[in-house]
């Protein structure tokens, strides 16, 4: 199928986005599976012992945090030697995927002088960074 210049640019961007999404998704699934095996095997002891979870997972998150002393925000990065928080890193990679794909696509929009979509991509990245930063959670 022969494409017009605009369509060719769009398809090129779609391909770039797809390539990054594919790579991040596959890495995320592999990491999630590996981290789960580490978590369940006890190779890296979890912060909250597995046997204690049934008494805790029915609590609202605020009471769960109070009873376990589990950290919020990015403080869990200091607990990566714990199996449960190692799994959380793998899970967080899914939430990071869109921002990384947008960051890769943004220079291409700028190179194509597509100001509208470059602005939309920049605004989306900013929004995801605000969400990831935990700033909004301080308002809760």
């Amino acid at each position: 199928m022969e494409l017009k210049p605009d369509e060719a640019q769009d398809q090129q961007l779609q391909d770039i986005y797809a390539r990054w999404l594919d790579a991040i998704g596959k890495a995320g699934f592999t990491a999630t599976l590996a981290a789960l095996l580490v978590y369940l095997s006890g190779a890296m002891p979890p912060f909250v012992p597995l046997a204690e979870l049934p008494a805790l997972w029915g609590l609202p998150v605020g009471r769960y945090l109070a009873q376990t002393g589990a950290p919020t925000g990015w403080a869990w990065l200091g607990l990566l030697e714990r199996g449960d928080f190692l799994s959380l890193v793998a899970i967080a990679s899914f939430a990071a995927a869109s921002a990384l794909c947008y960051l890769r696509a943004l220079p291409a929009f700028i190179a194509h002088r597509d100001r509208t979509y470059a602005s939309i991509a920049a605004a989306q990245v900013a929004l995801l960074l605000v969400a990831a930063s935990g700033v909004l959670n301080r308002l809760l």
Binding site: T32, L36, A70, G73, W74, S87, A95, N137, L140
Partner: peptide, 15 residues
């Protein structure tokens, strides 16, 4: 991200 930062993501449920 809001749920992750709030501690409302338990790997034993999510994975």
């Amino acid at each position: 991200w809001v749920y992750i930062n709030s501690g409302a993501v338990l790997p034993i449920i999510v994975v």
